[in-house]
Design a protein around this nucleic acid. Structure first.
Lengths: 354, 354
DNA sequence: GTGAAAGCGCTAACAG
DNA sequence: CTGTTAGCGCTTTCAC
């Protein structure tokens, strides 16, 4: 073997055997495959990525070489060369016990079907960590970023906008998204529930809500709408910390009953809270919906099967995931997205609890 | 500007202006930062990665240039050059409603703290998809792979072993892991629950279990252990499909009661199933634990707060995630892991339901 | 403490 | 349909 090529050094030093800068990792590369298939590396690359552009006989030789060597393409190298990483990042506030699971599920599935992988990040409740997370994500040069919940940090929003990476914000509605948006109106939801409970005869309403920005907006809209409804008293509001749990629902219910034993309905900012309310009612022998009507939020899998079945606001999380994935795949294929804002709405699922 | 360098072509063609092969992406690179800071790219790199090896005055100049430009390192390029991607892949059977959420949470947190990102993959229930997933993951050259549940496919196991990537299998115990392991014994768990319920006076036991391999082993161990316990009748087993839901718990309970109304205990393969059992019992006016004792599995957040509080098998999912992350970070730092198998055990949390 | 050179493994851009 | 060339943006190796 001979040294294949040599550079001319700026200063015309005498020819030395150029040192080897680095040893290869030893793993099969596309060059190995190409050598075995007796084609050039680029042809091997085409055989794998755009098989239609390669003669079938060549294709067969390359495929043979791939199976023979157990070659797995290095997507770091591919991504660097093509500036398409086929990676999509998702940011969730928290993973455990989150209402975003259905969305993550469908996002992962939809993206996998299109050849993309999902990277997961937790923004948590700390702005500094959120900023660090966004930089870490941008550093991976993903082909898209899906943000669930709200991206609070102005710094992060600026970085995202500057990165040029397609961004989909979800689970909310605004007229000025960073880029694209799949969500619904929390205000409309709050108003709808107030009217629904009023229609069911509630006059002394209470609310147990997580203290997060979107739930807060639902509550505000509910309270405001309730004031305009005939005979409706001012809604009692009990705040609980995020993330919501069954436990918080029980405690919240207990606290409300302690102060206002005569309430006749409770709107909970999550189904888990509502389940806690049902549990506390059961433990105290309070009839639901007879004495108190209960409405949840989310329509999680268990909502239909608890006792009594839970009336709740249904949000199609799986659809949010699918649509967000579609947005990003569209963009990655260079197709501009016409409508950047998609309102998937909500619905109230009437069951026995209200 | 002048062409900086030129290669000597094999055949000595006359000097032509070499065409520009590709345009840069236009984003700030380390070279831009280096130019502004008036240092070489490698010094800029060192300033960011090993600041201790750079003079403080140089460091300041580089940092200034970074903030000025908004530079974000391209980790695809860095990973390719260093063959350390700082990416860890996690494989879960499904995301939604999974018992692995606590683990994913702590895995994400622990890894993020060490500077790693998590990539998520769903193996689902289809072997072909599982194989494709493993190849997609290996293609990213992650610094580690955490597998939750069981990796069924022999093909995938072979590929993983051949890839040289550190692998941590979790939630189970075997003497022949692919690489490393953090889990517990499902057999011991099953035996322990059988003994526990026997000690609580159960003689006509029933089981509602998901039809997945690990749950099946718990059931088998339970049934076998029960046969040896004085006065214990053969356990009635009702299988339900994975993933388990509250609904399955209700239906399973209903089916068992239809055939064997005199059972006095039910062991459920998940807390969600157990909650379904409690719900069905409530709907039918059956006293728990008076007439039927109920034991769950998992000790999810809600277990302590349902009515009655659920006796259940506690598995420290968060710890599994932490330990798995530690294993991988250790390996990534070149430190060999002494004990590749970690049994984190289980415990029975005694509450009112049994 | 700093730098020049040489790749990591792949694909875009042309040319034939 | 196939090949040559030149990078993508970073870090390793070796030298000073």
């Amino acid at each position: 073997m001979q040294t294949k090529k040599r550079r001319i050094t700026q200063r015309g030093t005498e020819s030395q055997t150029p040192r080897r800068a680095r040893r290869s990792t030893g793993i099969t590369t596309l060059m190995d495959v190409a050598r075995i298939a007796r084609v050039s590396p680029i042809t091997a690359s085409r055989a794998l990525n755009t098989p239609g552009k390669v003669a079938s006989e060549t294709l067969a030789r390359v495929r043979e070489a791939v199976t023979q060597t157990g070659y797995v393409p290095n997507m770091l190298a591919g991504g660097l060369a093509s500036s398409r990483s086929r990676l999509v990042a998702a940011v969730v506030p928290i993973i455990a016990g989150s209402v975003f699971l259905d969305m993550m599920q469908s996002l992962t599935d939809t993206l996998a079907a299109a050849g993309y992988q999902l990277m997961l990040g937790q923004s948590g409740y700390d702005i500094a960590r959120e900023d660090a997370l966004i930089d870490a994500i941008i550093g991976r040069r993903p082909d898209g970023i899906v943000i669930t919940g709200v991206m609070h940090s102005a710094y992060a929003r600026k970085r995202l906008a500057a990165s040029g990476i397609p961004v989909v914000e979800t689970w909310d509605l605004t007229h000025s998204p960073i880029d694209m948006l799949v969500g619904f109106s929390h205000e409309k939801t709050g108003v709808a529930v107030a009217r629904f409970l009023h229609g069911r005869g509630s006059r002394r309403p209470a609310i147990i809500s997580a203290d997060d920005p979107r739930a807060r907006r639902r509550v505000r809209a509910y309270v405001k709408a309730a004031r305009k409804l005939a005979g409706m008293e001012e809604a009692i509001v009990e705040w609980v910390p995020s993330p919501t749990t069954l436990k918080q629902g029980r405690y919240g219910m207990a606290r409300i009953l302690g102060k206002h034993p005569d309430i006749d309905s409770i709107f909970c900012s999550s189904d888990l809270l509502a389940l806690g309310v049902l549990t506390e009612a059961l433990a105290r022998g309070i009839d639901v919906p007879g004495r108190i009507a209960v409405v949840g939020f989310g329509d999680l899998a268990f909502a239909a099967e608890v006792h009594p079945p839970l009336t709740t606001v249904r949000i199609d999380g799986a659809r949010i995931g699918r649509e967000a994935a579609h947005f990003i795949v569209q963009r990655a294929q260079g197709k501009p997205v016409a409508d950047r804002i998609l309102d998937i709405g909500y619905s109230i699922v009437e069951r026995a609890s209200a």
